[in-house]
Design a binder for these strands. Structure first.
Lengths: 193, 193
DNA sequence: TAAAAACATTGAACAAGTTCAATAAATACA
DNA sequence: TGTATTTATTGAACTTGTTCAATGTTTTTA
């Protein structure tokens, strides 16, 4: 039970057996059917999730109707709307399952409990946030400097297994280009799938 | 001494007087002349800094020679190359003073000491990293969806005092557009300065 | 398994932003 | 204060990517 979560945690911090049981006990399993939502714009995100199985997209719908995917979350990745979760503000994001999925959810209250009662947990999330921050900085710089061709090639090279599970529409929405243009890029690069 | 730093810290956590003295004692003051560097590409960033006075730019030079500014740091902002600092890897970034500046620096070792000996420090940096992460996500989404006009207007509205201290070259390098195009945008918008 | 829905491809016209080069204006500095 | 350097402006040609519309393909679902 919750073996992936325990393994993930152990990569970054050392917990006693009782602390581990205590902390992991705060997570509730939830099955999410393909296309259904964990969060919709306007709601307050009061959970953080660890994906055991499946695939989610975290995205924003711009005023002009265009969907921008902020990130994907697959097995052993975490997801939340950090802004809404942290500030208890209305979310600008949607979180939707793209496959039938299993996710472990911890509520904001239970996370607070963990911060206050298991000292190492503060460290765990500090390290996790650092890592995602580094990755996001890199993505930011890439997006501002690379052409769409390079962004696409980098993406399928960096996430080969994930890109197999996504439509080109979704990849385009992540890269921030139109799917028509992605199609033309793929043609130019002789990518057939 | 170090009043701004102490005030900053107190916004997020509560330290006893001795803890505060202990922690702030780990910071060394450094004067940095305009145009000189705190960090250059290829070096390992073993410090984190809190700006007391002045202005820095943290930027990357792309293979094609274009300078991309990742962020600016003014009074009461922190700066480091998080990736190089965290992983002790060679930095891809330059950190340069754009004005004569005063900065408080803490070494990686001393920060480790603080993490291990002052429990609340873990929380402080967890919260700080969360905040910058939220801001970076927002900037990411903006950059992918907004036109250069909007990005520029948003920037000068969000950072009115900072933008007064920057050249248009620097603002363009932050927004990820050419400075010629920024000039045309300013003309169109009737911005005279 | 047939119909509906979602996804992918292609072309043509267009818009946004870049590059290069020339010039002007402002700033730094000896 | 005058000269060198950096910064800003402008225009023309060009590149990258978008939008719209039409068509074909694949996947989902009743």
């Amino acid at each position: 039970m919750k073996d992936n979560l325990k393994e993930y945690i152990s990569k970054y911090i050392s917990l006693s057996e009782s602390e581990m049981t205590d902390f992991c006990g705060l997570f509730q399993n939830k099955s999410v059917r393909k296309k259904s939502f964990l969060l919709k714009e306007g709601e307050i995100c009061d959970f953080e999730g660890f994906v055991e199985k499946g695939l989610f997209r975290i995205y924003h719908i711009h005023p002009n109707g265009v969907e921008q995917i902020l990130y994907f979350a697959i097995e052993n990745w975490w997801l939340t709307d950090l802004e809404s979760f942290t500030n208890a503000s209305f979310s600008k994001l949607h979180i939707q399952a793209l496959e039938d999925s299993e996710i472990l959810l911890i509520s904001k209250n239970d996370k607070e409990y963990a911060y206050n009662n298991i000292p190492q947990i503060e460290k765990l999330f500090r390290i996790m946030t650092q890592k995602t921050h580094i990755a996001l900085q890199q993505r930011m710089m890439d997006n501002l400097s690379k052409t769409a061709d390079q962004l696409y090639l980098d993406f399928i090279e960096k996430y080969p297994q994930l890109s197999q599970r996504l439509t080109n529409l979704q990849i385009a929405a992540y890269l921030g280009i139109s799917h028509e243009f992605l199609s033309k890029i793929r043609k130019k690069l002789f990518i057939s799938k």
